[in-house]
Write a protein that binds this DNA or RNA. Structure first.
Lengths: 154, 154
DNA sequence: CTGCCTGCAAACTCTTTGCACGAAT
DNA sequence: ATTCGTGCAAAGAGTTTGCAGGCAG
Protein backbone atom coordinates (compact mmCIF):
# COMPACT_ATOMS: atom_id res chain seq x y z
CA UNK A 1 0.00 0.00 0.00
CA UNK A 2 1.39 3.41 -0.99
CA UNK A 3 1.68 6.20 1.51
CA UNK A 4 -0.96 8.39 -0.16
CA UNK A 5 -3.33 5.42 -0.15
CA UNK A 6 -2.53 4.79 3.52
CA UNK A 7 -3.21 8.45 4.24
CA UNK A 8 -6.65 8.13 2.72
CA UNK A 9 -7.26 5.01 4.76
CA UNK A 10 -6.19 6.86 7.91
CA UNK A 11 -8.45 9.84 7.25
CA UNK A 12 -11.33 7.55 6.44
CA UNK A 13 -10.79 5.56 9.61
CA UNK A 14 -10.75 8.71 11.71
CA UNK A 15 -13.89 10.06 10.12
CA UNK A 16 -15.80 6.82 10.47
CA UNK A 17 -14.91 6.66 14.12
CA UNK A 18 -16.01 10.23 14.67
CA UNK A 19 -12.42 11.29 15.34
CA UNK A 20 -10.96 14.50 14.01
CA UNK A 21 -8.26 14.94 11.40
CA UNK A 22 -5.77 17.16 13.19
CA UNK A 23 -2.36 18.45 12.13
CA UNK A 24 -0.74 16.54 14.98
CA UNK A 25 -2.29 13.24 13.94
CA UNK A 26 -1.20 13.84 10.36
CA UNK A 27 2.35 14.66 11.43
CA UNK A 28 2.49 11.48 13.49
CA UNK A 29 1.10 9.54 10.56
CA UNK A 30 3.72 10.95 8.21
CA UNK A 31 6.54 10.29 10.65
CA UNK A 32 5.42 6.73 11.33
CA UNK A 33 4.87 5.71 7.72
CA UNK A 34 8.26 7.09 6.70
CA UNK A 35 10.10 4.65 8.96
CA UNK A 36 11.88 1.71 7.46
CA UNK A 37 12.79 0.08 10.76
CA UNK A 38 10.96 -0.60 13.99
CA UNK A 39 10.63 2.45 16.20
CA UNK A 40 9.55 3.36 19.73
CA UNK A 41 7.03 5.95 20.90
CA UNK A 42 9.90 8.21 21.96
CA UNK A 43 11.59 7.99 18.56
CA UNK A 44 8.29 8.65 16.84
CA UNK A 45 7.89 11.77 18.97
CA UNK A 46 11.21 13.08 17.65
CA UNK A 47 10.34 12.29 14.06
CA UNK A 48 6.89 13.81 14.33
CA UNK A 49 8.26 16.98 15.97
CA UNK A 50 10.59 17.42 13.02
CA UNK A 51 7.45 17.73 10.93
CA UNK A 52 5.29 19.65 13.40
CA UNK A 53 7.01 20.82 16.55
CA UNK A 54 3.73 21.22 18.39
CA UNK A 55 3.33 17.46 18.69
CA UNK A 56 3.44 16.29 22.30
CA UNK A 57 4.36 13.00 23.86
CA UNK A 58 0.80 12.52 25.07
CA UNK A 59 -0.60 12.83 21.58
CA UNK A 60 1.88 10.31 20.25
CA UNK A 61 0.78 7.85 22.91
CA UNK A 62 -2.86 8.61 22.16
CA UNK A 63 -2.40 8.21 18.42
CA UNK A 64 -0.44 4.97 18.38
CA UNK A 65 -3.41 2.81 19.43
CA UNK A 66 -5.51 4.46 16.72
CA UNK A 67 -2.97 3.66 14.05
CA UNK A 68 -2.59 0.13 15.37
CA UNK A 69 -6.33 -0.41 15.40
CA UNK A 70 -6.60 0.82 11.85
CA UNK A 71 -3.92 -1.70 10.76
CA UNK A 72 -1.55 1.03 9.60
CA UNK A 73 0.96 0.01 12.23
CA UNK A 74 1.77 -3.23 13.92
CA UNK A 75 2.75 -3.28 17.58
CA UNK A 76 5.72 -5.45 18.46
CA UNK A 77 6.45 -6.31 22.07
CA UNK A 78 9.87 -7.87 22.42
CA UNK A 79 9.75 -7.83 26.23
CA UNK A 80 12.26 -5.03 26.62
CA UNK A 81 10.24 -2.56 28.61
CA UNK A 82 9.14 -0.48 25.67
CA UNK A 83 6.93 -1.32 22.73
CA UNK A 84 8.05 -1.12 19.13
CA UNK A 85 5.98 -0.23 16.11
CA UNK A 86 6.39 -0.74 12.41
CA UNK A 87 4.35 0.24 9.35
CA UNK A 88 2.06 -2.59 8.35
CA UNK A 89 2.77 -2.14 4.67
CA UNK A 90 1.75 -5.66 3.66
CA UNK A 91 -1.88 -5.06 4.47
CA UNK A 92 -2.78 -6.82 7.67
CA UNK A 93 -3.43 -10.38 8.66
CA UNK A 94 -0.17 -12.13 7.81
CA UNK A 95 1.41 -13.74 10.84
CA UNK A 96 5.00 -12.68 11.37
CA UNK A 97 7.71 -14.00 13.64
CA UNK A 98 10.35 -11.67 15.06
CA UNK A 99 14.05 -12.27 15.34
CA UNK A 100 15.68 -9.86 17.76
CA UNK A 101 19.44 -9.44 17.50
CA UNK A 102 20.92 -9.09 20.96
CA UNK A 103 23.99 -7.32 19.52
CA UNK A 104 22.35 -5.10 16.92
CA UNK A 105 19.12 -4.44 18.83
CA UNK A 106 17.48 -4.81 15.47
CA UNK A 107 14.21 -6.58 14.82
CA UNK A 108 13.89 -8.76 11.74
CA UNK A 109 10.61 -10.20 10.57
CA UNK A 110 9.73 -13.40 8.86
CA UNK A 111 6.35 -14.75 7.95
CA UNK A 112 5.39 -17.80 9.96
CA UNK A 113 2.01 -19.20 8.94
CA UNK A 114 2.59 -22.27 11.11
CA UNK A 115 1.96 -20.05 14.12
CA UNK A 116 -1.73 -20.03 13.34
CA UNK A 117 -1.78 -23.78 13.23
CA UNK A 118 -0.08 -23.85 16.59
CA UNK A 119 -2.53 -21.39 18.05
CA UNK A 120 -5.46 -23.45 16.87
CA UNK A 121 -4.01 -26.75 18.02
CA UNK A 122 -3.04 -25.64 21.50
CA UNK A 123 -6.17 -23.63 22.05
CA UNK A 124 -8.67 -26.24 21.01
CA UNK A 125 -7.19 -28.71 23.48
CA UNK A 126 -7.90 -26.19 26.24
CA UNK A 127 -11.30 -25.17 24.90
CA UNK A 128 -9.99 -21.73 24.01
CA UNK A 129 -10.48 -19.58 20.93
CA UNK A 130 -7.15 -18.21 19.69
CA UNK A 131 -6.98 -14.46 19.14
CA UNK A 132 -3.35 -13.88 18.29
CA UNK A 133 0.01 -15.53 18.52
CA UNK A 134 3.56 -14.37 18.44
CA UNK A 135 6.84 -16.14 17.92
CA UNK A 136 10.03 -14.39 18.90
CA UNK A 137 13.60 -15.56 18.54
CA UNK A 138 16.45 -13.85 20.39
CA UNK A 139 19.83 -14.30 18.75
CA UNK A 140 23.40 -13.09 18.64
CA UNK A 141 25.00 -11.66 15.54
CA UNK A 142 27.47 -14.30 14.39
CA UNK A 143 29.65 -11.87 12.46
CA UNK A 144 29.78 -9.43 15.34
CA UNK A 145 30.75 -12.18 17.76
CA UNK A 146 33.55 -13.36 15.51
CA UNK A 147 34.98 -10.12 14.18
CA UNK A 148 33.77 -7.43 16.55
CA UNK A 149 32.01 -5.64 13.75
CA UNK A 150 28.83 -6.21 11.84
CA UNK A 151 27.52 -4.48 8.70
CA UNK A 152 24.24 -3.96 10.47
CA UNK A 153 25.81 -2.07 13.36
CA UNK A 154 25.41 1.69 13.27
CA UNK B 1 13.11 -32.46 40.68
CA UNK B 2 11.93 -32.60 44.27
CA UNK B 3 11.90 -29.49 46.41
CA UNK B 4 14.66 -30.71 48.76
CA UNK B 5 16.82 -31.46 45.72
CA UNK B 6 16.06 -28.03 44.32
CA UNK B 7 16.99 -26.50 47.64
CA UNK B 8 20.38 -28.16 47.50
CA UNK B 9 20.81 -26.94 43.96
CA UNK B 10 19.95 -23.41 45.06
CA UNK B 11 22.38 -23.43 47.97
CA UNK B 12 25.10 -24.87 45.76
CA UNK B 13 24.48 -22.24 43.13
CA UNK B 14 24.70 -19.45 45.68
CA UNK B 15 27.89 -20.81 47.19
CA UNK B 16 29.58 -21.32 43.85
CA UNK B 17 28.75 -17.74 42.89
CA UNK B 18 30.12 -16.42 46.15
CA UNK B 19 26.63 -15.38 47.23
CA UNK B 20 25.36 -15.87 50.75
CA UNK B 21 22.64 -18.18 51.96
CA UNK B 22 20.34 -15.85 53.85
CA UNK B 23 17.03 -16.47 55.55
CA UNK B 24 15.35 -14.09 53.13
CA UNK B 25 16.63 -15.93 50.09
CA UNK B 26 15.52 -19.23 51.56
CA UNK B 27 12.04 -17.87 52.32
CA UNK B 28 11.73 -16.60 48.77
CA UNK B 29 12.93 -19.95 47.48
CA UNK B 30 10.34 -21.83 49.57
CA UNK B 31 7.55 -19.49 48.52
CA UNK B 32 8.44 -19.70 44.84
CA UNK B 33 8.83 -23.46 44.65
CA UNK B 34 5.52 -24.02 46.44
CA UNK B 35 3.57 -22.30 43.64
CA UNK B 36 1.55 -24.39 41.25
CA UNK B 37 0.62 -21.53 38.94
CA UNK B 38 2.47 -18.63 37.41
CA UNK B 39 3.06 -15.78 39.84
CA UNK B 40 4.26 -12.17 39.81
CA UNK B 41 6.96 -10.53 41.90
CA UNK B 42 4.30 -8.88 44.04
CA UNK B 43 2.52 -12.16 44.72
CA UNK B 44 5.82 -13.80 45.57
CA UNK B 45 6.47 -11.01 48.07
CA UNK B 46 3.22 -11.88 49.85
CA UNK B 47 3.95 -15.59 49.86
CA UNK B 48 7.51 -15.09 51.09
CA UNK B 49 6.38 -12.72 53.83
CA UNK B 50 4.01 -15.39 55.12
CA UNK B 51 7.14 -17.47 55.71
CA UNK B 52 9.46 -14.71 56.88
CA UNK B 53 7.88 -11.31 57.37
CA UNK B 54 11.22 -9.54 57.15
CA UNK B 55 11.40 -10.14 53.38
CA UNK B 56 11.27 -6.91 51.43
CA UNK B 57 10.17 -6.13 47.92
CA UNK B 58 13.72 -5.18 46.98
CA UNK B 59 15.06 -8.57 47.99
CA UNK B 60 12.39 -10.35 46.02
CA UNK B 61 13.36 -8.37 42.93
CA UNK B 62 17.04 -9.05 43.62
CA UNK B 63 16.48 -12.77 44.15
CA UNK B 64 14.30 -13.47 41.13
CA UNK B 65 17.16 -13.08 38.60
CA UNK B 66 19.30 -15.40 40.71
CA UNK B 67 16.66 -18.10 40.72
CA UNK B 68 16.07 -17.62 37.01
CA UNK B 69 19.78 -17.86 36.25
CA UNK B 70 20.04 -21.04 38.26
CA UNK B 71 17.18 -22.58 36.26
CA UNK B 72 14.99 -22.98 39.31
CA UNK B 73 12.47 -20.56 37.85
CA UNK B 74 11.47 -19.66 34.35
CA UNK B 75 10.57 -16.08 33.50
CA UNK B 76 7.50 -15.61 31.36
CA UNK B 77 6.83 -12.27 29.72
CA UNK B 78 3.32 -12.14 28.31
CA UNK B 79 3.58 -8.47 27.44
CA UNK B 80 1.21 -7.33 30.16
CA UNK B 81 3.41 -4.88 32.02
CA UNK B 82 4.58 -7.29 34.66
CA UNK B 83 6.63 -10.45 34.42
CA UNK B 84 5.45 -13.85 35.53
CA UNK B 85 7.52 -16.66 36.97
CA UNK B 86 6.98 -20.36 37.38
CA UNK B 87 9.00 -23.17 38.94
CA UNK B 88 11.09 -24.90 36.32
CA UNK B 89 10.34 -28.36 37.68
CA UNK B 90 11.08 -30.20 34.48
CA UNK B 91 14.76 -29.43 34.69
CA UNK B 92 15.65 -26.75 32.23
CA UNK B 93 16.05 -26.66 28.49
CA UNK B 94 12.65 -27.81 27.26
CA UNK B 95 11.06 -25.25 24.97
CA UNK B 96 7.56 -24.30 26.05
CA UNK B 97 4.89 -22.29 24.36
CA UNK B 98 2.43 -20.24 26.40
CA UNK B 99 -1.30 -19.91 25.93
CA UNK B 100 -2.69 -16.90 27.76
CA UNK B 101 -6.43 -16.87 28.38
CA UNK B 102 -7.73 -13.32 27.99
CA UNK B 103 -10.75 -14.13 30.19
CA UNK B 104 -9.13 -16.28 32.88
CA UNK B 105 -5.81 -14.42 32.94
CA UNK B 106 -4.28 -17.85 33.29
CA UNK B 107 -1.16 -19.06 31.58
CA UNK B 108 -1.07 -22.58 30.17
CA UNK B 109 2.08 -24.22 28.92
CA UNK B 110 2.71 -26.68 26.18
CA UNK B 111 5.96 -28.07 24.94
CA UNK B 112 6.82 -26.89 21.44
CA UNK B 113 10.05 -28.39 20.16
CA UNK B 114 9.37 -26.99 16.71
CA UNK B 115 10.27 -23.58 18.12
CA UNK B 116 13.91 -24.54 18.16
CA UNK B 117 13.77 -25.52 14.53
CA UNK B 118 12.19 -22.18 13.76
CA UNK B 119 14.83 -20.31 15.68
CA UNK B 120 17.59 -22.10 13.84
CA UNK B 121 16.04 -21.69 10.44
CA UNK B 122 15.28 -18.00 10.73
CA UNK B 123 18.53 -17.17 12.41
CA UNK B 124 20.85 -18.92 10.01
CA UNK B 125 19.31 -17.03 7.11
CA UNK B 126 20.28 -13.79 8.86
CA UNK B 127 23.67 -15.04 10.04
CA UNK B 128 22.52 -15.04 13.64
CA UNK B 129 22.98 -17.57 16.42
CA UNK B 130 19.70 -18.26 18.20
CA UNK B 131 19.72 -17.92 21.97
CA UNK B 132 16.09 -18.39 22.89
CA UNK B 133 12.66 -18.37 21.38
CA UNK B 134 9.17 -17.99 22.65
CA UNK B 135 5.78 -18.70 21.24
CA UNK B 136 2.75 -17.17 22.82
CA UNK B 137 -0.90 -17.59 21.96
CA UNK B 138 -3.56 -15.26 23.32
CA UNK B 139 -7.02 -16.74 23.41
CA UNK B 140 -10.53 -16.37 24.76
CA UNK B 141 -12.20 -18.97 26.94
CA UNK B 142 -14.86 -20.56 24.77
CA UNK B 143 -16.99 -21.73 27.68
CA UNK B 144 -16.84 -18.34 29.37
CA UNK B 145 -17.86 -16.58 26.18
CA UNK B 146 -20.83 -18.90 25.69
CA UNK B 147 -22.13 -19.34 29.21
CA UNK B 148 -20.66 -16.47 31.19
CA UNK B 149 -18.93 -18.88 33.55
CA UNK B 150 -15.88 -21.05 33.31
CA UNK B 151 -14.62 -23.74 35.68
CA UNK B 152 -11.22 -22.08 35.62
CA UNK B 153 -12.55 -18.75 36.82
CA UNK B 154 -11.97 -17.91 40.47
C1' DC C 1 35.93 -8.80 61.23
C1' DT C 2 34.98 -8.02 56.54
C1' DG C 3 32.10 -7.29 53.05
C1' DC C 4 28.04 -8.90 51.03
C1' DC C 5 22.92 -8.45 52.01
C1' DT C 6 19.10 -6.16 53.70
C1' DG C 7 15.02 -2.85 54.22
C1' DC C 8 13.61 1.55 53.28
C1' DA C 9 12.47 5.01 50.36
C1' DA C 10 13.59 7.54 46.51
C1' DA C 11 14.57 7.24 41.70
C1' DC C 12 13.68 5.45 37.16
C1' DT C 13 11.34 4.15 32.73
C1' DC C 14 7.54 3.87 30.10
C1' DT C 15 2.86 5.01 29.72
C1' DT C 16 -1.59 7.05 31.11
C1' DT C 17 -4.54 10.73 32.76
C1' DG C 18 -6.78 15.33 34.67
C1' DC C 19 -7.20 19.80 33.42
C1' DA C 20 -7.98 24.09 31.03
C1' DC C 21 -7.12 25.94 26.60
C1' DG C 22 -7.49 25.59 21.51
C1' DA C 23 -8.93 23.95 17.14
C1' DA C 24 -11.92 20.89 13.83
C1' DT C 25 -16.46 20.28 12.29
C1' DA D 1 -21.05 26.93 18.84
C1' DT D 2 -20.02 22.48 20.25
C1' DT D 3 -17.23 19.02 21.32
C1' DC D 4 -13.30 16.73 20.80
C1' DG D 5 -8.18 17.20 20.77
C1' DT D 6 -4.18 19.08 22.69
C1' DG D 7 0.00 20.21 25.69
C1' DC D 8 1.53 20.22 30.09
C1' DA D 9 2.65 18.18 34.16
C1' DA D 10 1.45 15.01 37.53
C1' DA D 11 0.21 10.39 38.46
C1' DG D 12 0.70 5.35 37.83
C1' DA D 13 2.66 0.75 37.51
C1' DG D 14 6.49 -2.12 37.78
C1' DT D 15 11.20 -2.33 38.72
C1' DT D 16 15.82 -0.70 40.15
C1' DT D 17 19.08 1.55 43.13
C1' DG D 18 21.70 4.49 46.96
C1' DC D 19 22.41 4.29 51.56
C1' DA D 20 23.22 3.09 56.39
C1' DG D 21 22.91 -0.62 59.30
C1' DG D 22 22.91 -6.03 59.90
C1' DC D 23 24.30 -10.65 59.44
C1' DA D 24 26.83 -14.66 56.98
C1' DG D 25 31.17 -16.57 56.37
Amino acid sequence: MSIPAALEKFKKFLTQKGLRVTNQRLAIFDAALAQKEHFTAEQLLDYARAIDDSVSRATVYRTLPIMTESSLLREVDIGSGEKYYTPNQGGSTTQVAHVVCLDCDRIFESSAPVMEWYGSTFSSKLNLTPVSQRLQVSAHCTLFRQTGTCPRHG
